Computed example of a mutant assay.
Amino acid sequence: MKRVRVLIGGPVSEWPAALQAGELTGPWVAADRGALRLLQLGVVPELVAGDFDSLAPAERNLVEQQVHKIVAVRPEKDETDTELLLRLLGEDETIDEIEIYGATGGRLDQLLSNIWIFTQLRFRDLVAKIKLIDRSNVVSFYLPGIHAIERLPEMTYLGFINLTAVENLTLLDEKYALQSWSSTTPFSWSSNEFTAKINHFSFDSGIVAVIQSRDLHGQQGD
């Protein structure tokens, strides 16, 4: 299986501990400031894309000196740096899984953009390959069908969010069941839980995000 890890520019405070410690192996690619942060970890990304508006001239020079493949665009563009990078990754059909770090925390508009990106028709072929990962959440994306979800041992909760209209969303064996639920608007079924190592759900149309999450120290669940 070919997995690519992506770092974008969200706050370092939201990184999982293994990333902060530089323990996650590549290959790595990066958008904008994510490139500098990888270099600071001693990791040279294979590809960097963006307008680099978050880097000072000296920082950009550092990236340009060490990274061999850079796709630079002007700040006045019609897609975000993350969308640009995903479009480039989508050209490589050998990639099976894309883990994205640095997509959460900080500005809410960027967080929502990083989640709803995958409702765009041009990224449909990437939907099932994507995971957004931070220190307390792992988000996966699903197209219609019957799906099995394996519980991550460090996570407690399970949430289902239809990002688009959805038909017949059914939570088959989770703690709180749901039978053939449909909606024309996005909705979040949060704070559910696994009943076994592997649980199942299904739906007939739309795109559904599934979030495995945990409370951090000092936080309390719903």
Results as ranks from 00 to 15, higher is better:
2 K>F: 08
4 V>G: 04
7 L>A: 11
8 I>A: 03
10 G>D: 14
11 P>C: 08
11 P>W: 08
13 S>W: 01
13 S>G: 12
15 W>K: 00
16 P>M: 06
17 A>M: 07
19 L>C: 07
23 E>P: 05
30 A>C: 01
31 A>D: 13
32 D>I: 05
33 R>P: 04
34 G>C: 04
34 G>Q: 06
35 A>Q: 07
36 L>I: 03
36 L>E: 15
36 L>F: 09
38 L>W: 09
40 Q>F: 00
41 L>M: 12
41 L>P: 12
45 P>N: 11
46 E>Y: 03
47 L>D: 06
49 A>W: 02
49 A>K: 00
51 D>A: 08
55 L>P: 02
58 A>P: 02
60 R>L: 14
62 L>T: 15
62 L>K: 03
63 V>C: 05
65 Q>L: 02
66 Q>G: 09
66 Q>F: 02
67 V>A: 08
67 V>W: 05
69 K>P: 00
72 A>R: 09
73 V>D: 13
74 R>I: 03
75 P>Q: 13
80 T>N: 09
80 T>V: 12
81 D>F: 04
82 T>G: 08
86 L>E: 10
87 R>A: 11
88 L>F: 03
90 G>I: 06
92 D>C: 07
93 E>H: 12
94 T>F: 06
99 E>R: 00
103 A>Q: 07
105 G>R: 00
105 G>P: 01
107 R>Q: 07
108 L>F: 15
110 Q>M: 04
111 L>F: 14
115 I>M: 08
115 I>Y: 12
115 I>P: 12
121 L>C: 01
124 R>H: 11
125 D>N: 13
126 L>K: 03
132 L>G: 12
135 R>A: 10
137 N>W: 03
138 V>W: 05
138 V>P: 08
139 V>F: 12
141 F>R: 02
145 G>V: 10
146 I>L: 09
147 H>L: 01
149 I>W: 10
152 L>V: 09
152 L>C: 05
153 P>Q: 08
154 E>Y: 06
155 M>F: 11
155 M>W: 11
156 T>N: 12
156 T>R: 05
158 L>C: 04
160 F>A: 06
162 N>A: 07
162 N>G: 09
163 L>Q: 08
163 L>R: 00
165 A>P: 05
165 A>I: 04
166 V>M: 04
166 V>H: 04
169 L>F: 07
170 T>S: 14
173 D>R: 00
174 E>S: 15
174 E>M: 12
175 K>L: 13
179 Q>T: 14
179 Q>N: 13
180 S>L: 07
184 T>W: 05
185 T>V: 13
188 S>G: 15
190 S>T: 15
191 S>I: 09
192 N>S: 07
194 F>T: 12
195 T>L: 08
196 A>V: 09
196 A>S: 14
198 I>V: 15
198 I>P: 04
198 I>Q: 14
201 F>W: 09
204 D>Y: 01
204 D>A: 13
206 G>Y: 10
209 A>C: 06
209 A>R: 00
209 A>M: 13
210 V>A: 06
216 L>N: 12
216 L>F: 03
218 G>F: 09
220 Q>P: 00
